[in-house]
């Protein structure tokens, strides 16, 4: 992690509630450029809502997110921000009416105004990177869950985003497909792209992250290096959570 630099994204006092339910109750985080930040914690702790604030799929009630010195509330062109902050969803959300190739080149052609030839060339390279070069001409319905998610990652990367958000990218997958998706994400770490990952895969978070945020009840209970969160933290809430998810249900 590049702590010597000014952070690329700064979050201060972020709050959000749905009706009476406080989902985020005051969050402060710095995200360094090129770093990998994992967000872990129990279900309902506000992880996904927090992540969705970064590309303005959710609007916080109060607090600020500053991206390269610019406050989100001053951004008029939300679409422009979103083009630079990609997202990978739990449910993949590939467009079923388009083939894999069309899924990937849609945004670069329609939004970045790339030529089709250029976008296709890029898409073929990206499909190669996620190991699916032979699937360009099939519809998403033909793909397995793991393949869909890899295409979704390629689709997000085609916009050449500076930041990539992962919202539980393996939670909807069969166990045997989780590895192939995590490997793709691991390969992306260290390429310079900044990643925020909401995940329940603790070993993965430990291996890939520069920084881990532990969220509970709409706040960040603790944040630090993976070593700190997974081994050194003495916070009883974190220890209880980790022992449950790492040792699996056999302890219960």
């Amino acid at each position: 992690m590049k702590d010597d630099k000014t952070p690329m994204i700064t979050v201060r006092g972020l709050k959000k509630s749905f009706g009476d339910l406080n989902v985020l109750s005051g969050i402060d985080v710095d995200v360094a450029e090129g770093s990998v930040v994992s967000i872990i914690g129990p279900s309902g702790s506000g992880k996904s809502t927090f992540l969705r604030c970064f590309n303005m799929l959710e609007t916080p009630d109060s607090g600020t997110i500053t991206y390269r010195g610019k406050d989100y509330s001053e951004i008029n062109d939300v679409a422009f921000l979103r083009a630079n902050v990609g997202m990978v969803f739990q449910q993949f959300n590939l467009f079923p009416n388009m083939k894999v190739m069309e899924n990937i080149i849609w945004a670069p052609v329609k939004i970045r105004k790339q030529s089709k030839a250029e976008a296709r060339k890029n898409a073929i390279r990206l499909l190669g990177e996620v190991g699916l070069e032979d699937k360009a001409d099939v519809y998403p319905a033909m793909l397995s869950g793991g393949q869909k998610q890899r295409v979704a990652i390629a689709r997000a990367l085609a916009m050449e985003p500076e930041v990539l958000l992962f919202d539980e990218p393996t939670s909807a997958l069969d166990p045997e497909m989780i590895g192939e998706v995590l490997n793709v994400i691991k390969d992306l770490a260290g390429t310079g792209i900044t990643m925020l990952i909401v995940t329940h895969e603790m070993n993965f978070a430990r291996q890939v992250s520069d920084k881990v945020l532990f969220m509970d009840g709409g706040t960040i209970l603790e944040s630090g290096t993976p070593e700190y969160i997974f081994s050194e933290s003495t916070n009883p809430r974190i220890k209880a959570f980790l022992s449950k998810v790492i040792n699996g249900p056999k302890n219960e």
Binding site: L57, A79, R82, F95, N97, K110, I111
Partner: peptide
């Protein structure tokens, strides 16, 4: 599915583009 809208928007598309390229083809079918 709302996820289709969110996926389109998250790629940097405006509402109308997502509507006409992604949502309406699926809806019509």
């Amino acid at each position: 599915d709302t996820g289709q809208f969110e996926a389109g928007l998250s790629l940097g598309a405006h509402y109308n583009l997502v509507m006409f390229d992604v949502i309406i083809p699926q809806a019509l079918k």
